[in-house]
């Protein structure tokens, strides 16, 4: 049976059995193995992908049901080859992963949360990832990663009030030109603080 899938912006038609899940189609027919097969019956969240921006379990939808949606897999989050999205980078910064098996699902779930709610509370984050099981981290650093990503996204390109106290604030840290080359490339986490946290 034909299934036309739009994955990460590209539309492909594949020929699959109706019983083939979207997860298996992504992995076997489209070569996108970033969506992980865990329990394969809707319990663990490792196979999470976004359908029109909302997280779903790709093991609980058949490929033949998935036409007409904008499907986003972990491969579709990075802004360019070799780069990481803000949420992906935050997981690296806070060590929000160990074995990495749950990570694509966690990142996509976190990404979807931050698209709807730029300032989530810790409870909001815990609630959002409650359907994703991690057996390594104990979740603390995953929650931290999403908090960190939220903070960065809120601050990035934030409009300034040009009539108030923001008016004379530089858009670029003037010290960055001098302290960055001398002390090596700033970690992104440090770059968020004045002078990269260095006095």
């Amino acid at each position: 049976m034909k299934a036309t899938l739009k994955v990460n912006g590209r539309t492909t038609t594949i020929d699959v059995e109706p019983r083939k899940t979207l997860l298996d189609a992504l992995r076997d027919d489209l070569g996108l193995v970033g969506s992980h097969a865990g329990c394969e019956h809707g319990v663990c969240g490792a196979c999470t992908v976004l359908l029109d921006g909302d997280p779903v379990r790709s093991c609980l939808i058949f490929a033949v049901q998935a036409d007409g949606y904008e499907i986003t897999t972990i491969e579709g989050l990075a802004p360019a080859p070799g780069e990481l999205s803000v949420v992906q980078d935050a997981f690296c910064e806070t060590h929000g992963l160990q074995c990495g098996y749950c990570t694509p699902g966690m990142i996509l779930t976190g990404h979807a949360l931050l698209q709807r709610n730029p300032d989530p509370s810790r409870d909001d984050i815990v609630d959002a990832i409650s359907g994703n099981i991690c057996r390594c981290t104990g979740y603390g650093q995953i929650v931290e990663a999403i908090e960190f990503a939220a903070d960065r996204l809120r601050k990035a390109n934030a409009p300034r009030d040009l009539t108030g106290s923001d008016a004379n604030q530089p858009h670029v840290d003037p010290a960055a030109a001098t302290d960055a080359p001398q002390q090596g490339v700033l970690e992104a986490a440090e770059a968020d603080t004045p002078h990269g946290g260095r006095s």
């Binding site: 809707g42 969240g45 999470t48 359908l51 909302d54 997280p55 779903v56 379990r57 609980l60 939808i61 779930t109 609630d127 959002a128 409650s130 359907g131």
Partner: peptide, 12 residues
């Protein structure tokens, strides 16, 4: 409704 399954199951 927020108690029904998890968000990724309430989506579908």
């Amino acid at each position: 409704l927020p108690w029904v399954g998890h968000l990724p199951t309430r989506t579908r």
